[in-house]
Simulated assay, not measured.
Amino acid sequence: MKALVIDDEAAMRALIATILRGAGHEVIEAADGRIGMELFERHQPELVITDIIMPNQEGIETIRTLHRLRPDVRIIAISGGGHGQFDFLGMAREFGALATLAKPFRKQELLDVVARVAH
């Protein structure tokens, strides 16, 4: 499966990409939602894993746009948690994410969620 990983934290993005590549997926990486949207349109991945809090274009806006452009794309939202009273992962589900993961997560958790949304 072709996957797009969008996260402004280079180390987290690289870790997710390494895990997915190790499981046989083709991976494209983006540092924010704006770059992610450009790569999405160019490469048409089946799966998008996006962080929520990012510069330039944050994850909720990215999820909404992805869902509007291609309702069938599988989206997993990741976040370091809510800030204050906001439940960002809950909001991500409302706007089209099929699954969410709270950081930090284990390798097997990521692989399990990817397998679940792939089917």
Results as ranks from 00 to 15, higher is better:
Glu41Cys: 12
Ala99Thr: 08
Val5Tyr: 01
Gly82Leu: 01
Ile49Glu: 03
Ile60Phe: 07
Ile35Ala: 15
Met54Leu: 04
Ala115Asp: 09
Met91Asp: 01
Arg42Pro: 02
Pro45Met: 05
His119Ser: 10
Ile52Phe: 00
Ala30Gly: 11
Met37Ser: 13
Ile16Cys: 08
Ile16Leu: 15
Arg13Val: 12
Arg68Val: 09
Val113Tyr: 01
Asp87Asn: 15
Ile75Val: 12
Leu69Arg: 14
Pro55Glu: 11
Leu89Lys: 02
Asp8Tyr: 08
Glu94Cys: 04
Gly59Ile: 05
Leu20Gln: 14
Thr18Glu: 11
Pro104Leu: 09
Leu39Arg: 08
Ile35Thr: 15
Val73Asp: 02
Glu58His: 11
Asp112Lys: 06
Gly22Arg: 05
Glu58Pro: 05
Arg64Gln: 14
Glu26Asp: 15
Gly80Val: 04
Lys103Leu: 01
Leu47Ser: 00
Lys107Gln: 09
Arg13Met: 11
Leu39Val: 02
Leu39Asn: 06
Ala31Lys: 13
Gly84Ser: 02
Ser79Ile: 00
Arg21Gln: 14
His83Ile: 13
Lys103Ile: 01
Thr65Gly: 06
Arg93Leu: 12
Phe86Trp: 03
Arg106Thr: 11
Pro45Glu: 05
Gln108Pro: 02
Val113Ser: 01
Arg70Ala: 05
Glu61Asn: 12
Thr62Tyr: 04
Gln57His: 11
Phe86Cys: 02
Met1Cys: 00
Arg21Leu: 02
Ala11His: 13
